[in-house]
Design a protein around this nucleic acid. Structure first.
Lengths: 239, 239
DNA sequence: ATCGAAGGATTGTTGAACAATCGCTAAATT
DNA sequence: AATTTAGCGATTGTTCAACAATCCTTCGAT
């Protein structure tokens, strides 16, 4: 697995670009993610894939060793993940993979209802609507291929696209954080093979209403969908 | 100086600590904020008070020295503030107090429209409505005392209370972050003495509609208010 | 004046160290 | 025996010192 083989690539980088004029290099620099960011990315990945399950403890020294970075860097990565609610810090005890209590499930869906429904009510540019459509088609393809994993991500793309209708950078990042948070406990739910299957038609309907400019109808459909989804989640989880 | 002073309010079940001793003490321990958190608090304070103005650079070593902490700790505090968008990290260049471009202003108001309007549309418990009313009264008092500063915070309390109607922990923290972000550049706007004065009546009206259960009317009033507010902000700021 | 090459400063990251704190186990008390 | 106490080991919180990488500026060369 992955092994972030980070480590020492020291002198190589600059040599080739020496003649390439420093200003140009600086201008098209594509923000090489810091080590802390890459550690956070790796952990986010493991979180999303279910390698790290809710409640699991993340020991600084262990992770530092595994990824070949220093404890301090791991610490910065933890801060990042904690700000996204993916992990929880228990002072002096360590950080743990966040686990959502029943109350949190409702809370998350409240956020989704507020943001998604508002976004769809506002309509959106043709390009943004097209993105929603694209997510629907992505879901169909995944369904045809019996790819549950792909179906799940397509669904997330769908809802991400809906929020994107509002064209707000901040709303987009909020939504992506909420979705990441949900991925944390989707593994249990995904057990049920046709968990998403029903959603496919919902998404199609919502998308059609949106394309037809029937925003109020789309909003109602979406709201109903979210209510049902929350109920299912609450069902799968304890009470 | 300064003072994190936050939080030793463990008032609730403090009852008898006599026999309970260690275990009880451990149970109701009120999480002494870590040094990094206190540094973040201090910086947040200076940010809100305008001591640190948008665009200003925050040098790690300087702050570490000023506050008597290590560079690493400052770094953790920066991560916290960056996640709240109060500062921006320019890789290898340092962190700077966030400055909102015209586009950001619109973005922030988009978030506010989505969240606040949805929240008020949903109504809220009597207690939550009472909190809105309390914020209105707080504003009146401040206005009577000619306390511009107080008027500003009362206004923020008002909008925070509106979001609180939804009863969602996550929405509350999102909103408080947005408000903190706005405080960053309110200083320029606050110049205008009667900048908030007009809002007072708006808030009163909105609150009355809310109390009367006329949610749709309240939502419309709030929306109109936000639109006007954004316009004013865009005016004060470049372009 | 433009361009490119040192120089200095600051960030990014590491490694080691130590105090504070937590959880657990074993001893001591009743 | 049960419960409290004390002690121990492990982990976190924080500091310090170092170094490479990178940026900004100044200086010098063309």
């Amino acid at each position: 697995m992955a092994t972030s083989a980070a480590a020492t690539r020291s002198a190589s980088g600059t040599v080739a670009t020496s003649a390439a004029t420093s200003t140009a290099a600086a201008r098209l620099r594509v923000a090489v993610p810091s080590v802390a960011d890459r550690v956070a990315d790796e952990l986010r990945l493991q979180l999303a894939e279910g390698v790290l399950l809710p409640g699991a403890r993340l020991t600084e020294s262990t992770i530092a060793e595994d990824l070949g970075v220093s404890r301090n860097t791991v610490r910065e990565a933890f801060a990042e993940l904690a700000s996204e609610r993916l992990v929880v810090r228990h002072p002096n005890r360590g950080v743990f993979v966040a686990s959502l209590e029943p109350g949190d499930i409702h809370d998350v869906y409240t956020v989704r209802r507020v943001i998604e429904v508002s976004a769809i009510r506002g309509g959106g540019s043709p390009g943004a609507v097209a993105a929603v459509r694209a997510a629907v088609e992505e879901g169909k393809v995944a369904a045809a291929a019996n790819d549950d994993e792909g179906l799940g991500t397509a669904n997330q793309h769908f809802h991400g696209a809906i929020v994107a209708l509002a064209g707000s950078r901040r709303l987009n990042t909020i939504m992506s954080q909420v979705l990441a948070e949900m991925r944390l406990f989707f593994h249990k739910a995904t057990m049920d093979a046709n968990f998403y299957s029903g959603y496919l038609k919902d998404n199609e309907e919502i998308c059609e209403a949106l394309e037809a400019g029937e925003l109020e109808k789309a909003a109602e459909l979406l709201l109903a969908y979210l209510d049902r989804s929350e109920e299912k989640q609450a069902e799968v989880h304890g009470e």
